[in-house]
């Protein structure tokens, strides 16, 4: 590890900055506070995981960054802009829980969808599709329709779709939640390599402690009712992470701390 000897030229740039963020949903019965006083800074090149039980607001926070939800209080900037301005300037790619590919389009055409909307040239589109298909290990599947592929391949295609355009933020909402353990391990490994190669900033929502610890540079532990941040853990793990790092004491220690944080924040009152 001689990373420390390289002089840092630029101070890390804040990509997402949340200060005292509140969000209350008005429902028929009673208002539900989904986020309460959430403050967090995500820096350029970070891989931040959000972990917590259902209803802790991790997905809501991600959707706030994507301007899919409007916070009711506090301050949130993305690349120094409001989330909606960031959305209009196409600052991020969003990967949803399900692949959400359009069944009438081939995989290649699905990946082209954002490119068509954003007005990339034909030649550029083809080149980018080729590049991202390679990145997610789906070469040769561009002509297939989504329903002809397995769930894991579909999810990889949806990641490729989010990578195809020049957004330096990748927002991922439990992208591997519906996949089995083996596929998930494989995709986690690929995602880390991809993050290293592309130097994107990634915000990643998950239910899984090993997944969060394996992937992240920082782990944000959240707890429900109201959704809030209970712990932020800086990972001591090196950037280079083979799958078997998960058996090292350092890994287990971080996992333990995450578990403790989850337990402390979770009131078993129901």
């Amino acid at each position: 590890m001689n990373n420390e000897t390289i002089p840092q030229v630029d101070p890390p740039k804040a990509v997402v900055e949340a200060r005292g963020l509140d969000l209350t949903f008005q429902t028929k019965d009673s208002p539900i506070q989904a986020l309460k006083d959430v403050s967090l800074t995500i820096e350029q090149g970070d891989f931040v995981s959000f972990i917590g039980p259902s209803g802790c607001g991790k997905t809501t926070f991600l959707r706030c960054i994507a301007a899919l939800e409007q916070p009711t209080g506090g301050n949130l900037t993305v690349n120094g802009m409001t989330p909606d301005e960031a959305r209009r300037s196409r600052a991020y790619g969003y990967v949803f829980q399900a692949a959400g590919l359009y069944p009438w389009r081939t995989i290649a055409k699905n990946i082209k969808l954002p490119l068509e909307i954003m007005g990339y040239s034909r030649a550029d589109q083809d080149e980018r599709v080729k590049k991202v298909l390679q990145l997610v290990d789906l070469e040769g599947f561009g002509g297939k329709f989504p329903w002809q592929l397995s769930g894991g391949m579909q999810q990889r295609a949806s990641i490729a779709r989010a990578l195809a355009f020049d957004a330096d933020i990748l927002l991922m909402d439990e992208p591997f939640g519906a996949l089995d353990e083996i596929v998930r391990d494989h995709l986690n490994e690929q995602l880390l390599k991809l993050w290293e190669r592309t130097n994107k900033t990634i915000a990643f929502v998950t239910h899984s402690i090993p997944e969060a610890v394996y992937l992240s540079t920082r782990i944000v532990v959240m707890s429900p009712r109201p959704g809030r941040i209970t712990d932020v853990i800086e990972s001591p793990l090196p950037k280079e992470r083979p799958l078997d790092i998960r058996d090292t004491p350092e890994f287990l220690e971080v996992a333990h701390r995450v578990r403790e944080g989850l337990r402390a924040g979770h009131a078993y009152d129901d």
Partner: peptide
């Protein structure tokens, strides 16, 4: 989810309709 996706692309209503 598919509509949210179009929203994140900042697609115009016309593009959302066509695509």
């Amino acid at each position: 989810m598919q509509r949210d996706l179009m929203h994140t692309y900042a697609a115009t209503p016309g593009q959302g309709l066509r695509k």
